[in-house]
């Protein structure tokens, strides 16, 4: 038995990735998620409008971070801000008593605002927009679609690609008179189609079973999901080019998946995280998909309100997918790579 234990430790010591997962990952997870795992919202972006805006803003509870006081703005302006996700709460003093519009799509923020405003009694009327019953599934389902796409895109795709490498058939493909583009597109297209089908099924189930409203444009959502798919499929291809075995691919995919689950604002609100941790969250594609999906599903937001997540995701898609295709191409056509390198060397001579 002693020999067996020793052998196992020797093997583990040389398997750097597993060691990293065993030692580094728990430390990173604990520090990052220890800070991130916070449901308590202590600051809510708020705007106040109407004739008594100044006065109400001065007496609002500390939880409400009054960013803008606009006595001349109308209820219509307030609705536009809310739909565009410019603020979480608008206190409208054009009504008597004043009405507080709260964004129900930001679940924890809305719950905190609802509780704080409730303590004021009759002084304020609360109207929760987009998710009046503060239903968790309404917020979760749009985000879950992103998580499912991430899962298929990174784990399933990378496993499929590494299988080809591990069984030696990738080499066979490289020897066949197929263009690298044929191989890459042919290899990725089925996963794209399957993921798109899954997205459709989850969306329909979410709407039918959980009654999640779909207030925005289905085409806009399809466009956003398509762009997001390119990002996650690109990540899957990148993982496959850095892995020799399916087990390695799964390890790497998990390392990419975990932070997306915990730091994308889909479970814990980004606004409740310390700035440094939230900044990590803002580098992750799922964060933007969650904003986009919740915006289209619940708030019925259009491209004018959602251009930021769209642009960020498109940039990520371009970057990640290009890198993935180049790396995959290098594995497939080393001669072409060498010729290109040779030409470059000659040109600089």
């Amino acid at each position: 038995m002693k020999a067996m234990i020793l052998k196992e430790f020797r093997e583990l010591r040389r398997d750097r990735r597993t060691m990293a997962m065993l030692i580094l990952l728990p430390i990173v997870l604990l520090t990052i998620f220890g800070y991130a795992a916070n449901f308590t919202v202590d600051s809510i972006p708020t705007r106040v409008i109407g004739p008594d805006a100044e006065q109400v803003a001065a007496h609002a509870p500390a939880l409400f971070d009054i960013g803008q006081v606009s006595p001349d703005a109308t209820t219509e302006d307030a609705m536009t801000w809310m739909r565009d996700n410019d603020t979480e709460v608008v206190i409208d003093t054009t009504t008597q008593p004043p009405t507080a519009y709260v964004d129900g799509a930001s679940l924890f923020t809305a719950q905190a605002a609802d509780a704080a405003l409730g303590r004021l009694g009759d002084q304020v009327r609360i109207e929760i927009l987009y998710n009046p019953d503060l239903d968790t599934s309404w917020v979760m389902v749009p985000a879950l679609i992103g998580l499912i796409l991430t899962f298929i895109g990174t784990i399933i795709t990378s496993i499929g690609l590494v299988k080809e490498r591990q069984s030696g058939t990738l080499e066979q493909l490289a020897v066949m008179p197929l263009r690298p583009a044929d191989v890459i597109i042919g290899k990725i297209a089925p996963y794209f189609i399957l993921a798109a089908f899954d997205m459709l099924v989850v969306t329909l189930l979410g709407v039918w079973i959980f009654g999640v409203p779909f207030n925005g444009s289905p085409w806009l959502f399809a466009l956003g999901a398509g762009i997001f798919l390119f990002v996650v499929l690109g990540l899957g291809v990148l993982i496959s080019t850095a892995s020799q075995t399916q087990a390695q691919a799964i390890q790497l995919a998990i390392m990419l998946l975990l932070p997306q689950i915990l730091l994308s604002g889909f479970i814990f609100p980004l606004s409740a995280m310390p700035a440094a941790i939230a900044a990590i969250g803002r580098c992750l594609p799922l964060t933007y998909f969650v904003q986009l999906a919740q915006g289209i599903f619940l708030r019925g937001a259009g491209l004018d309100a959602l251009w930021v997540p769209f642009v960020v995701l498109a940039g990520m898609a371009l970057l990640v997918f290009t890198a993935a295709v180049l790396r995959f191409r290098r594995d497939l056509a080393p001669s072409a790579h060498r010729r290109a390198a040779g030409r470059k060397a000659e040109a600089t001579r």
Binding site: S167, G168, T169, E171, Q172, V175, M176, P177, L178, R179, S335, A336
Partner: peptide
Amino acid sequence: SRESRARLGYVPQGLGLW
């Protein structure tokens, strides 16, 4: 190249079958 590889048949050690 792709063109020259179209003119050869290759059986690798691992057979390269799916």
